[in-house]
């Protein structure tokens, strides 16, 4: 009885989440489209500037008519949105090529870089956070805390510049520019992972310490249950919070990847968007926000649902 009620509750909850996600995505797309509006100049003008054409009144009018800018906002928004749903992100201002393939290629590269960084950060910080929490107040805990504090205080562009200086220039271990080879992934991944690990360790450690202060841990210890079983229980109960922490850090990772890809010329979405910002290629910028925003929203809605599954009390 209880079981089936729980399942029913979970299913309604999942449907509610799906509806919420769709609503959020619509709001995201509206905001992105509106962003074009507040940008200085209209698309026809931007397009011409981006291509370096000399702007005369006639050229501008013709361009406006061609792009259908005279139609109402909502019609154009709807057209744009349905294009995106079909996988059509519009035509680049810069070279008149479809934007979608560029975005897809960039996304592929960005996913490689980001997931490698995320996995490395988790591999480093998860065990360290548990270890540190169990040794709260001891020397080893302090060392981990100081290191994570420093990592947390370093902007990733700074780490990448310092790593470049020490490893590429002083020690000559790596090539300065990423050429797509696995070795060239090392520096970008390190640059993204160091600050992220710092944040992970801090947040996870405090989550584990909260768990260690729960009544059930005292209860287990009073029954003489071994510490390794205590750890099993803590890991189990903290999963929901840990997933939430990771989901939220994905957002920071996305911002960081723009910086790191630009520095190391890693041909991902981040580098693509920075190039597009410089050449005012708006469809690419819009596509970038849509893709990143969608990934972030979906991930965090998923962690939210799994939080409820993992801790059935809430």
């Amino acid at each position: 009885m209880k079981q089936s009620e729980d399942t029913k509750f979970l299913i309604t909850n999942i449907f509610r989440k799906i509806a919420e996600t769709i609503l959020l995505l619509i709001i995201l797309s509206l905001l992105v489209f509106a962003l074009m509006y507040i940008a200085p100049g209209d698309p026809a003008e931007k397009r011409l500037t981006s291509q370096g054409t000399a702007i005369t009144k006639e050229v501008l009018e013709a361009e406006r008519a061609r792009l259908g800018l005279m139609r109402p906002f909502l019609v154009r928004y709807g057209e744009w949105l349905f294009g995106i749903i079909r996988g059509d992100f519009g035509i680049s201002f810069k070279d008149d090529m479809p934007v979608a393939p560029k975005l897809a290629a960039g996304l592929h590269k960005t996913l490689i870089l980001s997931s490698a960084s995320l996995i490395l950060s988790l591999l480093v910080s998860y065990p360290l956070a548990i270890w540190s929490a169990f040794r709260k107040g001891r020397v080893s805990d302090h060392i981990v805390r100081v290191l994570s504090f420093i990592g947390n205080s370093m902007p990733n562009f700074l780490i990448s510049v310092l790593l470049m200086y020490v490893l590429c220039i002083q020690l000559r271990l790596f090539p300065v520019i990423a050429d797509g080879s696995p070795a060239s992934l090392i520096l970008p991944v390190l640059s993204l992972s160091i600050p992220m690990s710092g944040r992970f360790i801090r947040q996870m450690r405090s989550e584990f310490i909260d768990q260690l202060n729960e009544d059930y841990v005292t209860g287990m210890r009073m029954r003489g249950v071994k510490e390794r079983y205590v750890a099993v229980n803590i890991i189990r109960n903290s999963l929901g919070h840990i997933l939430t922490i990771v989901g939220l850090q994905v957002g920071t990772l996305m911002g960081g990847s723009v910086v790191i890809e630009t520095i190391f010329r890693w041909p991902g979405l981040g580098k693509l968007v920075m190039d597009s910002i410089n050449s005012r290629d708006y469809p690419v910028i819009m596509g970038f926000v849509i893709i990143m925003g969608t990934i972030y929203i979906v991930i965090n809605q998923l962690t939210d649902v799994s939080y409820h599954v993992l801790d059935p009390r809430v």
Binding site: D215, Y216, G219, R236, N237, P312
Partner: peptide, 16 residues
């Protein structure tokens, strides 16, 4: 509250 509230009793007693 002295057992883990969200795990089944059986594995917890087994661990004990």
């Amino acid at each position: 509250g002295s057992f883990n509230p969200i795990r089944k009793y059986e594995p917890q007693i087994r661990e004990m």
